[in-house]
Design a binder for these strands. Structure first.
Lengths: 210, 210
DNA sequence: TTGCATTCCGGACCATAGTCCGCATCACGC
DNA sequence: GCGTGATGCGGACTATGGTCCGGAATGCAA
């Protein structure tokens, strides 16, 4: 059982970097159960798909009570988002410290396009898990993408309401729309990607490359 | 009990305009039950909100069996989408035959902006019902908006993959994103609208008006 | 009107998400 | 070690979406 990398126990992971005065430590059984749940859930998703992970089965296979799952993750969507955060960390590392053009070093426009393309691919790959997570990522994962795009837009000299422009640029990558276009309309991913590059180029005000 | 305006009985409303040869007429009890369900559901939504409409309660109040609801509408989301289609018809009438700038007569750019603004307002107004409908509208309602925007983009001389450009322009209006921005980030609707106008203007290649 | 084939109805039944509280387990101070 | 208060555990329980099939209502033809 490989321990999971997500922070343990605190309501807001961003505040969990240091144990704060007055905040008692996370109990060891809580941490152990959390890791067991995430590992078991990830394995079940990999083996049988997200829809096969019922809360009862997960509780049984992880040898914990059902209430423990809901205490830790709130609901099924929260659990799936936490499972997603495992691979999300690796994605973020590729963006922050990886090779250009996704990582630092490339010009901002190339990084923006690379980010969109990578997000498309990653979303398609995990689309069933993303849907089980309620059609979205964890708040942390979504905010990361938003901040990154906003930063790139600023570097590109885009004027306007950058937080909302970034959200609008990312909106066509959202899972419900993606699923409808891929599975109902049967559009090829390349076409979706090309159209997104077109839109992103129009928003930043350059003519699309490639 | 006012009869509901949605078409009755056929799987695909678009094909229900004429009774086709070989397709038997809709049975009168089926039509009656369908109307009763839609009226009762609309009333319950208006009085108590969408979340108060459970399938058991709806069946009891409409004096039909639960199975009947699922036969007609497939699932809860389908039912809510059908309820939404009642007001959606009025919205479509405003777009197709109403006053400019939403209706015909205004230049295409003004019509596009008016459409987005109207969709924002209408979505905010019915956001709980839209969420109960699974975060989206019926296929018919969504396709209508898509076709309208695509038509306006064509009139504006926009080049590119118009169906997907239209989808991208409409993506920031989708309910999950809208809800996150309004209720989690507490952004004012005016700011969302202004940012959308900015994005739409960039896509069509004009400087934003007002 | 009556008989017949078709379609639809209805509510018992199932699966699963989410709640609750008595009780076990833990961390800490002595 | 050991007592003690706090914290978390766990599984029985509830609520609700969705399924299924025996039987009734319907429409058509004679």
């Amino acid at each position: 059982m490989t321990p999971h990398s997500a922070p343990t126990g605190h309501p807001d992971p961003a505040l969990a970097l240091l144990p704060m005065a007055g905040t008692p430590r996370v109990r060891s059984d809580a941490a152990r159960n959390r890791d067991a749940l995430l590992c078991t859930a990830a394995r079940m998703v990999a083996e049988e798909g997200a829809s096969a992970v019922t809360m009862d089965r997960l509780a049984a296979e992880a040898c914990v009570g059902k209430g423990t799952i809901f205490r830790r993750f709130g609901n099924r969507a929260g659990l799936m988002a936490a499972v997603l955060d495992g691979s999300e960390a690796e994605f973020q590392a590729r963006v922050m410290r990886g090779e250009p053009p996704l990582g630092p070093g490339a010009p901002p426009y190339e990084r923006l396009i690379a980010f969109g393309v990578a997000r498309f691919q990653e979303s398609v790959q995990r689309i069933d898990l993303l849907e089980a997570a309620g059609g979205g990522r964890s708040h942390a994962a979504y905010s990361f993408g938003l901040l990154h795009v906003r930063h790139l837009l600023a570097e590109l000299g885009v004027e306007g309401d950058l937080p909302l422009l970034a959200a609008a640029v990312l909106a066509p990558l959202e899972v419900p729309l993606l699923r409808a276009q891929l599975e109902v309309q049967h559009l090829p991913l390349e076409r979706l990607t090309a159209a997104w590059i077109d839109v992103a180029s129009r928003v930043v005000g350059v003519s699309p490359t490639r």
